[in-house]
């Protein structure tokens, strides 16, 4: 029996992690002897050997398909959401949940087994990412650019764009809109009556984005006025407001910025 750990270094993305799960499993070193870590994020350990994982869409798809089929769509959704989280240890936790979930002799859903530390961790990460995505359902603000396109900027901690695309596309089917994720430098682009897409590695055209439409100023100031007048002075409670609407979201919100 080997005592040395083998650490699989995968790319910091959903596909990278799923490929890592595939390779680590496929290596037949035994589940106890392998560990997943993220390239560039992990601390190096002594007495361990390292293997680089080449991200492979096909392998990732196989893992995703297997997890979805064997664990069910709900549990897979948890794992996928956790994979979008920013935390480093998500890679190894996903591997552990896959091992526990694909082992036989179990009825019901693996994600209910919260006593298992890896399951609990994935559950937490999924919840954090899901909650942040919901925050952007709430606090994302569009502004209308000169050409009639709606534009929004966000700065999320986790990679939430894949989670919010469906919601906004369903809500605004006839609108051209884009959302720019500053943290991950990702674009969500939706053309009217088409499927939304993610675009990687493009920089926004700041000059174009600076030009807002004529009506935009008017509606933004109407909205600011509404938010002011709807507050009841006798109940003023800024701490409660801050609890529900943390400061980090306010930078890109219409009603929290801009003068009169």
């Amino acid at each position: 029996m080997r005592n040395e750990k083998t650490i699989f270094l995968c790319e910091d993305s959903v596909d990278g992690i799923f490929t890592g799960v595939y390779d680590a499993w496929d290596s037949r070193l035994g589940h106890g002897n392998v560990k997943l870590a993220l390239k560039g994020r992990a601390n190096y350990e002594m007495f361990a050997s390292y293997r680089e994982v080449e991200t492979d869409g096909e392998k990732a798809e196989k893992v995703a398909r297997t997890l979805r089929r064997r664990l069910g769509p709900e549990d897979y959704a948890h794992i996928y959401q956790a994979a979008l989280s920013k935390e480093e240890e998500r890679a190894d936790s996903i591997y552990r949940v896959a091992v526990a979930g694909l082992a036989g002799g179990r009825s019901g859903s693996i994600m209910q087994n919260l006593q298992n530390p890896a399951v609990c961790r994935i559950f937490e990460l999924s919840r954090t990412t899901g909650n942040e995505a919901h925050r952007y359902y709430q606090f994302l603000r569009f502004r209308e650019l000169a050409g009639g396109v709606l534009f929004s900027e966000i700065k999320p901690e986790n990679d939430v764009l894949p989670l919010i695309g469906d919601h906004f596309a369903d809500r605004f089917p006839g609108e051209d809109f884009m959302v720019y994720d500053r943290t991950h430098r990702l674009f969500l682009i939706h053309e009217a009556f088409k499927q939304w897409v993610l675009v990687v590695g493009e920089e926004p055209d700041w000059e174009k984005i600076g030009k807002i439409s004529d009506r935009e100023t008017q509606f933004a100031s109407l909205w600011r006025g509404f938010c002011r007048s709807v507050a009841i002075q006798e109940r003023r409670n800024v701490r409660l407001q801050q609890q529900f609407l943390p400061l980090k979201f306010r930078a890109y919100m219409t009603e929290m910025n801009g003068g009169a």
């Binding site: 709430q138 606090f139 009841i232 109940r235 800024v238 701490r239 409660l240 609890q243 609407l245 919100m253």
Partner: peptide, 8 residues
């Protein structure tokens, strides 16, 4: 979608 100064 938002919270006013009274926390509502």
């Amino acid at each position: 979608h938002s919270f006013s100064a009274d926390g509502r």
